[in-house]
Amino acid sequence: MLAVRRLVQMGAVLLVPLAAGPLSAQQMTFFANITNSQEVPPTHPTTVAGAPRISFGTATFVLNAAHTQLSFNATVFGLDFTHSQSADPNDDLLNAHIHSGPNGPGSGLNNPVAWGFHGSPFNDLFLDNANTVPSGLTDDCTAFATGVGGTCSGVWNLLEGNNTTLQAQLPNILAGNAYINFHTVQFAGGEIRGYLTAVPEPSAYALVGTGLVGLAALRMRRRRA
C-alpha cells in the first residue's frame, strides 16, 4: 500500500506542471468561458427600457506546435451581430478583440487590444509568417440565422497584431493574461470577456500514466530480486 501511495503522490506531482500547460514544443489548447462577471468592472446588461438581458459565450483556442499561429472558434449568445437581430440597440455588437498584457484574472486591471477580429481594429489580415499580402477579409464573425448572437473564428498569425504581434504576446498568453472581449453599444469597454485557460492535452496524461506503470514495474522487479 505504501508503494502504491507513493506512486500516486508522484503522479500528482507530475500532473501539476501539465495542468499549467504542455511543453512548449507541443500544440496547446485553451478554453474561455465568456461572461459579464470577468469584465473590469463587472457588467450588468439591460435593455434601453431597463429590463435585464443576458449575454454569454464560450471559445476554444489552439496554439500550434511551432507557436506561430493561434486559431480560435467562439460562440456568443445575446449580442446582436447585425444590429437587426433584436429591436433593442443596447446589445448591438461593436467590436471584438483578444486583449493581452501583464494583467491577469483578479488583478482588477484591463489589458490593451492585441488583436482584433470584428469591428475596429481588425488585425486578422491572413498574413503568413513571411508577412505576405493580406486576403482582404474584414470580419471573422457570422450572425446566427435565427435568434440573437453568432459565431467567430480566425487565426492570429505570428506577425499580426494591434501595435504588437503574436510573437510578442506569447509570454502573456502562456501566463494566462490574455482574454477574448466583446464590446457593445451599452458597454463600449467590453460587455463579456473570457480569459484563455490552458487545457491539458490527453497525450500528456497518457505519458504520465505510462511513466507510473513503468515505475510500478521497476519497483516490483526490485522486490523480486
Score class of each variant (00 low, 15 high):
Asn129Tyr: 05
Ala143Leu: 05
Phe182Lys: 00
Pro202Gln: 10
Pro202Asn: 11
Cys152Arg: 02
Val133Ala: 14
Thr132Ala: 06
Thr138Asn: 15
Phe144Pro: 12
Leu125Phe: 06
Trp115Met: 06
Pro121Cys: 10
Pro200Tyr: 06
Ala175Phe: 03
Trp156Gln: 03
Leu166Arg: 07
Phe117Val: 09
Gln167Lys: 11
Leu196Ile: 08
Asn110Pro: 07
Gly149Asp: 01
Leu127Met: 14
Ala145Pro: 14
Gly136Ala: 13
Asn111Gly: 15
Gly116Val: 04
Ala145Asn: 15
Ile180Gly: 10
Phe126Thr: 12
Trp156Phe: 07
Gly108Thr: 05
Gly150Arg: 00
Pro202Tyr: 02
Leu125Gln: 08
Cys141Met: 04
Leu174Lys: 13
Glu160Asn: 11
Ser203Cys: 12
Ser153Met: 12
Gly116Leu: 09
Gln167Leu: 05
Val133Lys: 08
Pro134Arg: 06
Asp128Glu: 07
Ser135Asn: 15
Val155Thr: 14
Leu125Trp: 02
Asn123Cys: 10
Pro200Ala: 02
Gln186Lys: 04
Thr164Glu: 02
Thr138Pro: 04
Leu196Ser: 06
Gln169Lys: 10
Trp115Pro: 04
Gly189Tyr: 12
Pro112Asn: 09
Leu170Met: 07
Thr165Lys: 09
Asn177Val: 03
Asn163Ser: 15
Leu127Cys: 05
Thr197Gln: 09
Glu160Gly: 05
Pro200Asp: 01
Ser135His: 14
Val148Glu: 08
Leu196Asn: 07
Gly150Glu: 07
Ala206Ser: 03
Thr164Ala: 05
Ser153Glu: 11
Ile180Thr: 10
Tyr195Cys: 15
Leu166Phe: 05
Asp140Thr: 13
Thr138Asp: 15
His118Thr: 12
Gly189Met: 13
Val185Asn: 11
His183Trp: 04
Gly194Ala: 07
Tyr179Pro: 13
Gly108Met: 03
Gly149Glu: 00
Ala143Arg: 09
Asn123Val: 00
Thr142Val: 13
Gly150Gln: 05
Ala204Ile: 01
Gln169Glu: 10
Leu174Glu: 00
Thr142Glu: 12
Gly194Trp: 01
Gly106Gln: 14
Gly149Ile: 00
Asn162Cys: 13
Pro112Lys: 03
Asn111Phe: 11
Val199Trp: 08
Thr184His: 01
Ala204Tyr: 00
Gly194Leu: 05
Ala188Ile: 15
Val185Phe: 10
Glu191Leu: 08
Ser203Arg: 07
Phe144Thr: 13
Thr197Glu: 08
Gln186Phe: 01
Gly189Ala: 15
Thr184Tyr: 04
Gly149Leu: 01
Ala130Gly: 12
Asn110Cys: 08
Val199Ala: 08
Tyr179Asp: 12
Ser203Gly: 13
Leu196Gln: 08
Val199Asn: 07
Gln186Ile: 04
Leu127Asp: 06
Asp139Tyr: 05
Thr151Val: 15
Glu191Trp: 06
Thr197Ala: 04
Phe126Ser: 10
Ala168Pro: 01
Thr138Ala: 15
Leu127Lys: 13
Gly189Gln: 15
Phe122Lys: 02
Phe182Ile: 02
Gly190Gln: 10
Leu127Ile: 09
Gly176Trp: 05
Gly154Pro: 11
Gly154Trp: 01
Trp115Cys: 04
Pro134Gly: 05
Asn131His: 11
Leu170Ile: 07
Leu137Thr: 15
Phe126Arg: 03
Gly147Ser: 14
Leu159Gly: 06
Asn123Ser: 12
Gln169Trp: 01
Leu159Asp: 05
Leu125Ser: 06
Phe144Val: 13
Gly116Ile: 03
Asn162Ser: 14
